[in-house]
Computed example of a mutant assay.
Amino acid sequence: MLTHLRPTLVLTTALTVVTGLAYPLAMTGLAGTLFPAKAAGSLVERDGVVVGSALIGQSFTGERYFHGRPSATTAPDPADATKTVAAPYNAANSGGSNLGPTSQALRDRVADDLARLKSENPAAPVPMDLVTTSGSGLDPDISPEAALFQAPRIARTRGLPEDRVRDLVAAQTQDRLLGILGEPRVNVLALNLALDAGQVRTGR
């Protein structure tokens, strides 16, 4: 029995050390050396203060800011731990709503969002990603169309020419990876930071 047990224990221990300890530590060290910013979480700073991550969306609700894609993430209800409450972009509980097309709650939520967005910009069709949540609930990006849809509101509330807001969106639009992977996108946090920086330069 020991003849069979010893090789099994040795192999299990060796693989645990290599794959569970040595390899993760080596990859973490290599990533920290070659890509320190990304390895640290792609944190975004403003005036030396961390204001978020380029990889995780934030809940911008003010009329003066671009809004991201809806998020269905939740958190425990402080008043009742057996229940949950909405907590948009909660990275500790990434996930979708799991509501299907027959869900009345989903249809009501989408209808409300559509009505609000159409009142904001009646002349343009509402981009799909402004009313649908993602599987993760953490998307930091929106489509260029979703950003441009919001340009009239931003221009109106900030007293800016709409063309200037559109130019800002174009400047912040990232192309497909390697020209072929994914879709063009705009990082909402970066766009809002650029928007604020532009306001400072104009003295508004």
Rank of each mutant, 00 (worst) to 15 (best):
D80Q: 00
G41P: 01
T82M: 08
R69A: 01
N93G: 02
A79P: 00
P7S: 04
V10A: 13
N93T: 05
A26M: 08
L21C: 11
D47W: 03
R46V: 10
G32C: 03
L30A: 12
R46G: 05
S53Y: 05
G41R: 04
P76V: 05
L34S: 10
G20R: 07
A87F: 08
I56G: 09
V85N: 07
A79Y: 15
H67P: 02
V51S: 09
N98C: 06
A40N: 09
S71Y: 00
L43V: 10
I56H: 05
G20I: 06
Q58T: 07
A72L: 06
L11Q: 11
G32P: 01
V49K: 14
S71D: 00
V17F: 15
L21M: 12
P24S: 05
S53I: 00
R64Q: 14
A31W: 09
G62T: 12
N90K: 09
D77Y: 03
M27S: 13
E45G: 04
A81Y: 04
D47C: 00
G41C: 07
G95Q: 03
G41N: 08
V85P: 01
V51I: 15
K38A: 15
G29Q: 07
Q58D: 08
F66G: 03
G29K: 02
G41T: 05
E45F: 14
A72I: 01
L9I: 10
T61W: 05
A40C: 02
V10P: 01
T12S: 14
L43W: 11
I56F: 11
G20Q: 08
G96H: 02
G68S: 06
P78E: 10
V44F: 06
T33N: 14
L30E: 05
T28V: 12
P24L: 03
L43Y: 11
N93L: 03
T13H: 13
M27L: 14
G95T: 01
T13V: 15
T8V: 15
A37P: 06
Y65H: 12
L15M: 15
F60Q: 02
A26D: 01
A86Q: 11
G48R: 00
A26L: 11
E63H: 13
A91T: 03
F60W: 06
L99Y: 01
S42M: 06
T74V: 13
G52S: 06
A87K: 14
L25F: 14
L25Q: 14
A37C: 10
V85I: 15
A91K: 08
F66R: 04
N93I: 01
E45Q: 10
L43E: 13
A75H: 09
L9Y: 10
D80R: 05
Y89K: 07
E63S: 14
Y65A: 08
P7L: 01
A81V: 08
H67G: 09
G32H: 07
M27V: 15
N90Y: 08
K38L: 13
G57L: 01
G57T: 01
